[in-house]
Design a protein around this nucleic acid. Structure first.
Length: 350
DNA sequence: AAAACGGGGAA
DNA sequence: TTCCCAGTTTT
């Protein structure tokens, strides 16, 4: 009944979009390529300019690449435009302007993957193949309460199978467009309209109030690179300066040597120029770099390059910040420190 | 299996 | 800011 409800919703609520009037392969193909990872509102003006400029696939095939790219300018993912143009030439010249009429052959075209081949095959040729785009992932994961990450190998397989199972075989093209439209307009990523949802009563996410947590998506967490320059102060009595990390960051509440973070690891000259205060310079006896090459320290989401600078001073500063304290080097072991610090300390003692 | 590829709109 | 959009191709 899910599919029937979605189809009914579609009949009542669908947008009037130009490629929907009377599905022809060329227009459906063009719109699908343009709407890959692109909102309808953003792609629509481009679509209108393209069909105006290139009414048939032959017109597109015969255009220069410069002209195609110029018309594509601002839409992003520019390899789409090149693939579009290449495919237009193939269809125009090799296929006499006729697009392949089935999923398998459509998928061979440049820029046509699983989604686009399914969309064209179902919408134009009524082949019962299910589309799985961002909308379908969202709607199905919520309705069935599926928590498999949509960008995992397992998730891709599972959702394609589920979408295929739900496909309304009598009208696959309409159904595919319906579930996507429903996802785009009603079962939205943020603030889905559950209160007026036609399939509310059978929706797992609604029943368990977890629409906001679905679909599950693996974070692609980019690894941030950071450059740490530790200043290991030590006076003639073996006293050292330690400070607590209080900022909202890694290693919160752990202790460390005074740290200068920079865009790149600093040189000795830069340390002297920027890192040392005037009164520290006055009591400075020697400063030398402990590790020749920066130590790489990898966290789940960060890569840290660290250099320890051993700074010998006659005496440590009198007035220190309230996050800092002066400790004897024998006492260091009492403080919680990051592993990166611990390794340095152990190597000095051992 | 993961990265690269764009730009804009919404919260 | 972060997320995500009618994904595909390359590494």
């Amino acid at each position: 009944m899910f599919s029937k409800s979605i189809l009914n919703w579609y009949n009542e609520n669908k947008r009037d979009l130009p490629w929907r009037n009377k599905p022809e392969a060329y227009f459906v193909w063009l719109s699908e390529i343009m709407l890959q990872q692109t909102r309808v509102a953003q792609g629509l003006p481009y679509y209108l300019r393209f069909v105006e400029e290139f009414p048939t696939v032959h017109d597109l095939a015969e255009a220069s690449q410069e002209k195609v790219l110029k018309l594509w300018q601002g839409l992003g993912y520019y390899s789409r435009a090149r693939n579009l143009h290449d495919t237009a030439k193939v269809v125009s010249v090799n296929f006499g302007g006729i697009f392949p009429n089935n999923y398998k052959d459509l998928k061979k075209l440049k820029g046509v993957g699983d989604y686009t081949a399914s969309a064209i095959a179902s919408i134009v040729y009524h082949e019962p193949v299910a589309v799985v785009d961002g909308n379908v992932y969202r709607v199905l994961s919520r309705f069935f309460g599926v928590e498999t990450p949509i960008n995992s190998t397992e998730g891709v397989k599972q959702f394609k199978a589920l979408a295929t199972k739900m496909l309304a075989e009598k009208s696959p093209g309409l159904y595919n467009q319906a579930i996507m439209e429903f996802g785009a307009l009603h079962c939205k990523p943020k603030n889905p309209q559950c209160v007026t949802c036609p399939v509310q009563s059978n929706c797992i996410a609604f029943q368990q109030n977890k629409a906001g947590e679905l679909p599950v998506k693996l974070k692609k967490q980019k690894v941030r690179e950071r450059f740490f320059n530790f200043l290991v102060f030590q006076d003639v009595k073996g006293q050292m300066l330690l400070q607590k990390r209080v900022e909202k960051d890694i290693w919160q509440h752990l202790y460390q040597f005074p740290l200068i973070e920079s865009k790149h690891n600093l040189t000795l000259a830069e340390i002297k120029k920027t890192a040392l205060l005037d009164n520290e310079k006055k009591v400075l006896q020697s400063i030398k770099r402990w590790n020749e090459n920066p130590i790489k320290h990898v966290l789940s989401h960060q890569k840290i390059w660290a250099i320890f600078w051993c700074v010998e001073v006659k005496k440590l500063p009198e007035n220190i910040q309230n996050t800092q304290q002066i400790v004897n080097k024998q006492e260091l072991v009492k403080f919680a420190v990051p592993v990166l610090m611990e390794k340095f300390i152990n190597s000095k003692n051992g």
